[in-house]
Design a protein around this nucleic acid. Structure first.
Lengths: 110, 110
DNA sequence: CATTAATATTAGTTAAAACTAATATTAATT
DNA sequence: AATTAATATTAGTTTTAACTAATATTAATG
């Protein structure tokens, strides 16, 4: 599953919000997110797996508990794609500005 | 449809890449993206509608042609969410740095 | 004004992802 | 060692989004 697919799910986004603030055990995430969205422990656990597998979350064992915290590396692809796109349209904006500038000059001449 | 759902589709991402570089008529997008992904004119057109409806693309009529260009406003929600998340974990990083710093000092004292 | 060109829309089908229910695993506790 | 607690996994079902085929709309052209 690709990074954008990961972020397209509201349960996963909410989970990322939680674990970006501080580490949370799986059970805590199930309580908060599970009740907010009305979904089962199994469902939340499956989302956690996806977050792990795609580099959005790191896990630490604490006895039987699994503590999740955010892993910024998952966002790399998203950031790169967004930046690339912005470079494209930024250069178009510049080209447009140049064009307008040229227009102004020839207007003055005429 | 929310902004993340919009970006989760590869056809729409490719389309955004195209129209971020320069304006493209619907037919051009159908040719390029349609053939790259092996999908019909209808399919591409449906994606274009989504990009319009969600503020990712602006349209200009040129006779029977419809010229699409990127609309940066669609990205606002995505940017805001990503920034918020980064603020969260950045402040955690700072807290951690402070903690480490304190550790260093008390180590020196002891 | 009939025809062609360019694009959009609609209805129905297919495919993919999310969910539940049940079960398995892993670690702590008695 | 058996039991309980915490979490993960699997199989099967439901839901949602993407697609095709067909048709409608809009504008240009002979």
């Amino acid at each position: 599953m690709n990074a954008f697919d990961v972020l397209s799910d509201p349960v996963r986004r909410r989970t990322l919000e939680l674990i970006s603030q501080k580490e949370h055990a799986s059970g805590e995430i199930v309580k908060v997110v599970g009740s907010e969205f009305g979904i089962s422990q199994s469902a939340v656990s499956q989302h956690l797996r996806i977050l792990r597998d795609t580099g959005f979350a790191k896990v630490r064992k604490d006895g039987a508990k699994r503590c999740y915290e955010i892993d910024p590396s998952g966002f790399d692809d998203v950031d790169a794609w967004l930046d690339q796109l912005r470079r494209y349209w930024a250069s178009r904006m510049e080209a447009l500005a140049t064009e307008i500038e040229r227009g102004k000059r020839s207007a003055k001449i005429t």
